[in-house]
Simulated scan of single mutants.
Amino acid sequence: MAPDPTRLFASPRARRRALFHALLATLLLVGVTILLRRQVAFLADAEAARAYVRGFGVWAPLALIVLQALQVVLVPVPGQVLAAVAGYLFGPWWGTLYNVVGIGIGSAAAFWLSRRFGRGYVERMVAEDALATFDGFVERRGLLTLFVLFLLPGLPDDAICFVGGLTHIPLRRLVVVAVVGRAPAFFLANVFGDLLATGDVGVAVGLLVFVTGLSALGYANRERIARRLNEWRR
């Protein structure tokens, strides 16, 4: 039986795992907030937080760039979370620039690692359903389709980087497409962070709801999107 393209989780086990991770993340967030309530109160003052970060000079942007690069390869947190933090601390334009640099480095590393160590490595790094959906896809349809995959919200961008590395497309072109395709979503995340910093909470919430809705639609329909793109230009 073909998989339902509108199903959010591949199996009940995947659903339980996602709910467990969400509960664990919530508990950790609450615990950290309680333990560090003084620091949280300080961070809630955007001007004070930005002034504090500026005190570190070039090291603060470098730290963000390194973290953003590592999240592509290691996937400990969604990149958009770091992007929102960057928007809060650095503003939408500088925050986006630092994020794009980090994403470029991380994407290049993911492409290179999958190309260097091959399919076995990718199978260990990428979820089975994502690999099944996008395996060989970029090789067949080319860079323009890869750009669309990166541009659409809700698709597993980091997993697509690893899968894309299995192609014969030159590494430089893969990196350019990954950076350009992912930049709009990261810019919106930075704008969200900046809106929180400037106190425009209502607009920030509206933007968050809009982007989250698009991402949910993209994720729920990822197989359908892949099929449509695979049929494109035939």
Score class of each variant (00 low, 15 high):
112 W>H: 13
132 A>P: 02
119 R>K: 11
192 F>S: 08
213 G>Q: 01
231 E>F: 03
48 A>C: 00
11 S>K: 11
4 D>N: 13
209 V>H: 03
149 L>H: 00
107 S>L: 02
94 W>N: 05
97 L>C: 10
54 R>I: 04
20 F>D: 00
229 L>R: 01
142 G>W: 12
18 A>C: 05
212 T>F: 12
153 P>F: 12
10 A>P: 07
178 A>M: 03
14 A>E: 15
17 R>N: 14
1 M>H: 01
152 L>N: 12
134 F>A: 00
79 G>W: 09
103 I>F: 11
231 E>L: 09
105 I>D: 06
131 L>Q: 06
231 E>P: 03
68 Q>F: 09
177 V>Q: 02
152 L>S: 12
24 L>M: 03
100 V>C: 06
124 R>D: 04
182 R>A: 15
214 L>Y: 01
143 L>R: 10
210 F>Y: 12
66 V>P: 05
163 V>W: 05
40 V>F: 14
207 L>C: 12
73 V>I: 13
2 A>I: 06
80 Q>H: 12
210 F>G: 10
195 L>T: 02
196 L>Q: 09
194 D>T: 08
200 D>A: 15
8 L>A: 00
109 A>D: 02
223 E>I: 15
27 L>V: 01
155 L>Y: 07
168 H>W: 13
7 R>S: 11
115 R>A: 08
75 V>T: 05
165 G>I: 13
19 L>I: 08
77 V>H: 12
84 A>M: 15
78 P>H: 01
131 L>A: 08
61 P>E: 11
115 R>G: 04
217 L>K: 06
122 V>Y: 09
57 G>N: 10
224 R>L: 10
8 L>Q: 02
129 D>S: 15
106 G>Y: 11
106 G>A: 14
221 N>A: 09
72 V>G: 07
48 A>V: 07
199 G>W: 03
84 A>F: 03
143 L>H: 08
229 L>S: 07
122 V>G: 01
49 A>D: 07
227 R>W: 14
207 L>P: 14
188 L>W: 09
111 F>I: 04
112 W>V: 01
191 V>F: 04
2 A>V: 10
202 G>H: 06
34 I>C: 01
66 V>R: 09
144 L>P: 02
82 L>Q: 10
59 W>R: 03
17 R>V: 10
139 E>M: 13
18 A>E: 08
209 V>L: 14
1 M>P: 01
46 A>K: 07
86 A>G: 13
98 Y>R: 04
189 A>T: 13
188 L>A: 14
204 A>V: 05
92 P>T: 04
142 G>S: 11
216 A>C: 10
9 F>I: 12
64 L>F: 15
137 F>I: 09
64 L>I: 14
207 L>K: 07
67 L>P: 07
74 L>Q: 02
21 H>A: 15
195 L>E: 05
230 N>K: 04
72 V>L: 03
208 L>Y: 11
222 R>W: 07
87 G>H: 08
10 A>E: 12
